[in-house]
């Protein structure tokens, strides 16, 4: 299609904004379909979900906390927040990354990592696990399952190393996060 006669009005403008990772903490009514509403919104509007964790909260009022890691330019992150906040069962949306910075919010993830191997590889896997403070939660003659908790990047690094010593399976929980200090998230 030439310059003069584009076939559509829908010009997509590429704005060169840097993509950022943001951790959102979303408090919702714990009712059927609420998760579908949130992820349906992300799918419909073309937003990214890097990680997602859902569980009950401390409250007795049947509330759930959805901790969601997303990535996008700052303006996209802003759009995501207002879109999610508009959903009827959403109580509040906190952008932990924007509000509290990289160190103001505590973010942890748990991973189970299965490693298969014998001999030296097996020994190396054990040593690495020790270095990363990973626990051995299952063992057989030719396999281990390690459990590691930590920041996402740390777990990424551990998994990366493990892949050269026989990693066969990974299961991660996704990020759980809270604001540091006495105030609520």
């Amino acid at each position: 299609m030439n310059e003069k006669n584009p076939a559509s009005t829908y010009d997509i403008i590429k704005v060169n904004e840097n993509e950022e990772k943001h951790t959102l903490s979303i408090i919702v009514d714990d009712e059927p379909g609420v998760l579908a509403r949130v992820i349906g919104l992300f799918a419909a509007r073309g937003f990214n979900i890097d990680s997602l964790t859902v569980s009950e909260t401390e409250s007795k009022n049947q509330l759930s906390r959805i901790t969601l890691v997303t990535s996008g330019s700052p303006s996209v992150i802003e759009k995501i927040k207002v879109q999610v906040d508009r959903l009827v069962p959403v109580h509040r949306v906190s952008d932990l990354t924007a509000q509290y910075g990289q160190y103001g919010a505590l973010e942890r993830e748990l991973a189970l990592i299965k490693v298969k191997g014998t001999g030296n590889k097996r020994l190396e896997a054990l040593r690495l696990a020790e270095a990363f403070d990973a626990q051995t939660v299952d063992a057989s003659l030719d396999s281990f399952i390690f459990q590691i908790t930590g920041r996402t990047r740390e777990i990424d690094r551990f998994i990366n190393l493990m892949s050269s010593v026989g990693l066969t399976e990974v299961s991660r929980t996704g990020v759980a996060a809270l604001k540091r200090g006495a105030d609520n998230t």
Binding site: G33, A36, R37, G40, A44, L87
Partner: peptide, 14 residues
């Protein structure tokens, strides 16, 4: 129905 209409309503209830 609530699944189908989730994307075309402000909110829906079963």
């Amino acid at each position: 129905t609530v699944g189908i209409t989730r994307a075309c309503t402000k909110h829906n209830w079963l």
